[in-house]
Amino acid sequence: MSDKITKEEILRICNVQPKKCMKCGKCSGTCPAYDEMDYHPHQFVYMVEHGQIEKLMASQSIYKCLSCFACLERCPRNVEPAKLIEAVRLAVIRQQGKNHMTENDVPALLDEELPQQAIVSSMRKYKK
């Protein structure tokens, strides 16, 4: 890893204002992937604000977010945690050799019925 990813870089990618957060935890209260995550949506908001980007980049949570937008829809302060999670994921996979998944991984994950959409979207989400 060459340059350290800064808080400013994350915020530039997603245009989120973590300071708007009032720390109510509703995002994490509504998240359907909560149990699969090591850091939870409200922690993304807090940790990005406090510059703890590396921990988040190393977190499995960025691949567990279901992009269901429940946190974004229900946040009383329109903080949009889902955008932050995506920005951290992008910061990771945009680095050389940091793809979470590539074409080579796909065949092993395929089954008869799997729709094209699932494959395309995982490439879009996890690979640069």
């Binding site: 359907p32 992937a33 699969e36 691949y63 567990k64 279901l66 992009s67 269901c68 429940a70 998944m101 994950l109 799997l114 699932a118 494959i119 979207s121 995982s122 989400k125």
Partner: peptide
């Protein structure tokens, strides 16, 4: 509520729970 579709490839268990 989300069915966990985006997880269906990588984490079947999580998708199945949903």
């Amino acid at each position: 509520e989300c069915c966990g579709g985006y997880m269906a490839m990588e984490d079947k268990g999580a998708a199945q729970d949903r």
